[in-house]
Design a protein around this nucleic acid. Structure first.
Lengths: 360, 360
DNA sequence: GTCTACTACTTGTACATACAAATACGCAAG
DNA sequence: CTTGCGTATTTGTATGTACAAGTAGTAGAC
């Protein structure tokens, strides 16, 4: 007794065979429901039933009003792991978007898809995100902006687990010195050094500084600043340095009192970045201190903030797209060649602006 | 407008809910097709359609002659798909980060992971991203900021495919009128209306406008502006309107000549958003036109740009976190109940600032 | 007590019809 | 040449009917 196969199943088999034997090529339009109905002498419902089965299998795609098309499901299988995850701290408005643009340009070009996640510079969120990435195990690479790279990271274990899975990782903007993971960033020490040298060359001797303490960039810029000062035999008193954390940086006005007091004797202030410099200008303005007549201000990043306000701020340009692009390129190389050393640091240069006055 | 969900989808939602609320335990026998037919007053075919969808998702199992049973493997299914994808255009520095924060707060709280992708307001990238999401089929929901919502979208069929896969989608900030997909946004028509009314109440009669033409928000704000002008019997000449696209918006200075000429007769200008207003202030400044003495300027969004410059700009606040949160909450509701209508529009209010002068 | 046949009920297949919604395309107006 | 509009085509939703096939339980025969 052979079992009678339902009509719709026979139809499924027939269509499958057509695709198998390339009589229906991927992307091509299939016979319409009514055509099949005539061809096989069945009702349209039966045809729909068959097509429904094939659609669930992902073999074909139905588009209302247009027709039914053969799917190219081999492509879906191929791109399965062509994905890179970008983990970044938060969005600063100017540097981040263009960095991500650089990353995307390179990766999309190479056929990868890009997903982004934000840690908000909180270790807890970084943990959640990394655990998610590890458990899904579906990315072929990671570009990470470290969370609070200046202080020991409690998620070290997760990075080691990722490394054990042989998923390439590149840090951008900063890095954890404890981990042997490559990074692409600007040379922060050089940024601190060159800008301080520039201030000195403009005749400044009493140069204060505001630095961020919870990331590696702040510490590197600080050491560049220190080295430049010492190189010229200039003294740095602790009282001339203000350390801020992520919180304070975003609400600098809360530290206005401290700032005004510490920089009273200074003729110039080196700022961690434009955001800090912008806040500092605001504090000075509210306290009747003129920039650059009374005090000079310099910073790092050269974002739009540096030229947006009333007084343009001397700064050092951030490579942005180029940095993102370099990180993406190096990640691609790491995916191909696990031994490749992907670390790269961009040189920086000073852009003089009105916020720095030449002293006689 | 409100009745867009097919009956079988409502049934799917109802059954899903029964399972969710444990009214139907795993392994247990479900209502028979005829019972459901009576309960909902639909045909048996419709019931079968709904049950077919659920069977494909692995939620239930049908056994001929015996009955339909709830599957218990949905735990694995759940953890696998606890992810939401956010697709947005580009990063504007102020609105976006806080919107995404609102989204993340809600979704992370609910145990979902969040991945973000940027279209750069290019249809091509939107296509790549959506295709990727479709082929991977691993997100349980989508929050999308439409790309160029003002012009017909060539990726329409991808959205329909997503809808067919029963992945809930919510648009934020704008929407495609052609698609019956819910959106969470500000009431852009009201923004245009209220701000224009405010300018009129300050004695202005010749009010120009700069609008973005390639997204729905620009068009809605324009129609709000027009309605307000007409409501007061004020004339609007085409010469008082400047239309910009995404490109021009970011480099408004290129249109300086046109802008200066068109607004020569005006006492006030309504701007598409703060970015445009900021660029406009710059053009005015370079041409020796004082704001607000010579001309008043008003805009929409009330981002930091509105208060960052020398002249604070009157604007209408954007809900940001609240908007993102609302979108996320509604998406979660849609995941549970496919029939839920998630559209929500925030009301807006005018924040007066120095950029608008009262005319005698 | 055990087996069998029957019956009621369940899901599966198949057909017919109707209208809705989306798309594609050609034709006429400008 | 472009734009809009109507028409034909295509898939989507919904209802109705009929019968087939499988399951579970029951009543009756042995």
């Amino acid at each position: 007794m052979e079992k009678a196969t339902p009509k719709y199943m026979e139809l499924v088999g027939w269509i499958n065979e057509q695709i198998e034997t390339k009589k229906l090529a991927p992307g091509q339009k299939m016979y319409s429901e009514n055509t099949l109905k005539e061809m096989f002498g069945v009702s349209r419902q039966t045809v729909r039933h068959a097509i429904g089965v094939l659609e669930n299998e992902g073999m074909i795609r139905r588009i209302q009003g247009s027709g039914t098309y053969i799917n190219d499901n081999r492509l879906a299988n191929l791109t399965k792991r062509m994905r890179v995850s970008v983990v970044t701290t938060y969005v600063d408005g100017y540097i981040f978007p263009r960095t991500i643009q650089g990353i995307e340009n390179v990766l999309l070009e190479a056929g990868y898809s890009v997903q982004i996640a934000f840690t908000n510079n909180q270790h807890g969120r970084e943990k959640t995100i990394l655990e998610d990435i590890i458990s899904r195990d579906e990315v072929s690479g990671l570009i990470v902006e470290p969370t609070k790279s200046g202080i020991p990271n409690p998620n070290m274990r997760l990075y080691q687990e990722i490394r054990k899975k042989r998923i390439p990782v590149i840090f951008i903007n900063s890095f954890y010195p404890q981990l042997k993971i490559p990074h692409v960033s600007i040379n922060d020490h050089m940024a601190g050094w060159k800008m301080t040298k520039y201030l000195i060359s403009m005749g400044h001797k009493k140069i204060g500084g505001i630095f961020k303490l919870d990331d590696g960039q702040g510490q590197a810029r600080f050491s560049g600043y220190m080295d430049a000062m010492m190189d010229d035999g200039l003294e740095v008193e602790d009282g001339q340095i203000v350390w801020v954390d992520t919180e304070e940086k975003q609400h600098l006005e809360k530290a206005a009192g401290k700032v005004m007091e510490r920089f009273r004797e200074c003729t110039a202030v080196f700022c961690y970045n434009d955001e800090v410099a912008f806040g500092l200008l605001d504090i000075f303005k509210k306290n009747g201190i003129r920039v650059p007549q009374d005090i000079s201000v310099a910073s790092v990043d050269d974002s739009e903030l540096a030229i947006l306000g009333e007084v343009p701020i001397a700064s050092t340009p951030h490579p942005m797209e180029r940095l993102g692009g370099k990180a993406a390129e190096n990640l691609l190389r790491m995916i191909k060649d696990p031994g490749f050393d992907a670390t790269y640091e961009f040189e920086v240069d000073v852009v003089p602006r009105r916020s720095v006055r030449k002293l006689k």
